[in-house]
Amino acid sequence: MRIGEVARRSGVSARMLRHYERLGLLVPAARTASGYRDYTETDLVHLTQIEGLRALGMTLAQVAEALDSEAAGPEALIADLAEQTRARIERDTALLARLTTLTSVSPGNWDAALAAVRLARGLESPIAGERQRAALELGASPQGAPAAQLIDALLAEESTNAAGALRWALVQSGSGAEVLREALRDPDPTRRARALAAAAQFPGDVATELILPLLDDPIAVIRQDAALAAGARSAGAAVPVLLGLVVSGPRDVEAAEALAEIARDRHAEREILIAIEAALGDPVASGAARGRLTQALGEFDPRATAPLLTALAADQDRAVALTARYLLQRGT
C-alpha cells in the first residue's frame, strides 16, 4: 500500500512516516520500480508498536532500541529510561535554579545577566556539538535568546544537527514566523534556503504566506523546497511547481505525495487530475516524464483516477500502459 493509505489507516501523517523512514524506524518492505514506497500489513503492525512506545514517553532513539531484536529485555530498557529521566530532572533542576536566580536579581546585577549571555555565546563556539547544546538549552529556557540572535546563528550554521536545534529554539522562542521575513529575502541563496527550512517549522498562515513567494525563487532547489513545504500545508499555489517536479524528477515521489495531500485537504482532486492529464498529453513530454506522471496517479483516489487510467492502459508507450493497468487492478 502507498504512503497515503498508511497515513489514512494509522492516523500518522505522511510527513512523520517519511521521518520514521529516515531514522530507520519504519522502512517500507519494498519500493515500486519508480521509487514509490510500498508498505505491507506487517509494516502497519510495526508502526502500531512505534506509536505505542512513543505514547509511553520514549524518545525515538529509545523506541528504536526497544524494537531491536538484539536489544536487552524490557526490564533493562525501563531501568535505563528511568535513569535517563532522573539525570534529565537533575539537569532541569539545576537550570531552573539558575533561571530563578536570574529572575530574582535586580536589573543592575551583571553577574547573573552575564550567565545568560555566556549560554547564548555558546552559539558562537567553533565546535558544532557545543553550538547544538547551546541552542537546545536556549530553546528550553523561558528566558531564551533574542530571535535575531538565533536567526543570525541559523543563517550561518553549516552543521545539520546544530541547524535543527536552532530551528527548534527559534520556534520555541515564541517570536512567530514573522521574524524570518527579512531572512527569506537574503540575497545569498544558501542563507535564504536555511531561512526557508526554519519557516517550514512554524505552523499557521503567517508561515505559509512567507513561504509562498519562494515558489518563484530564481534558484531551482529553493523553489522545490518551497513547493514541498507549501504542499505539506495544502497550499494550492504550490501545484504548478509540484507538477513540474513530477515531470522532471528526481523528487517526483515527494511531489506526487504533496499533490495528493493538497487534493484531499482542499478538495482539489479534479483540478489536479486535469493538470496531470494535460501534462501527459504534452507532445514534448518524454517517456520517462509520462511514466512518472502515471505513477503519480497511484497517490489519488482510485475512483477519481479510473477514467484516466483506463485511457492510459491502451497507451502506445508500453511502460505507461503497464503502469496504468497495474494501478487499475490495484484499485479494484
Rank of each mutant, 00 (worst) to 15 (best):
R2P: 13
E5I: 13
A14R: 12
R18Y: 08
Y20D: 09
V27L: 05
P28I: 02
S34D: 03
R37C: 08
T42M: 12
L47I: 08
I50T: 03
G52R: 12
G52P: 08
L60K: 12
A64Y: 07
P74Q: 14
E83G: 10
Q84L: 15
T85H: 15
I89T: 12
L95F: 10
L95M: 11
R98N: 11
G108Q: 14
G108A: 14
W110H: 08
A120K: 05
S125H: 09
E137I: 08
A140D: 13
Q149G: 15
L150W: 07
D152V: 04
A153L: 09
S159T: 07
W168A: 12
L170F: 07
R181P: 07
E182R: 12
D186R: 06
R191F: 07
F202E: 02
P203E: 05
D205C: 05
L215Q: 04
A220R: 15
V221Y: 14
V221W: 14
Q224I: 06
L228H: 07
A238F: 04
A238S: 11
V239R: 05
L243D: 06
G244Q: 02
V247L: 09
V247T: 14
A255T: 01
A258H: 03
E269L: 01
R270A: 15
G281P: 09
D282H: 15
A285L: 05
P302M: 00
R303C: 00
A306C: 05
T323L: 05
G331Y: 00
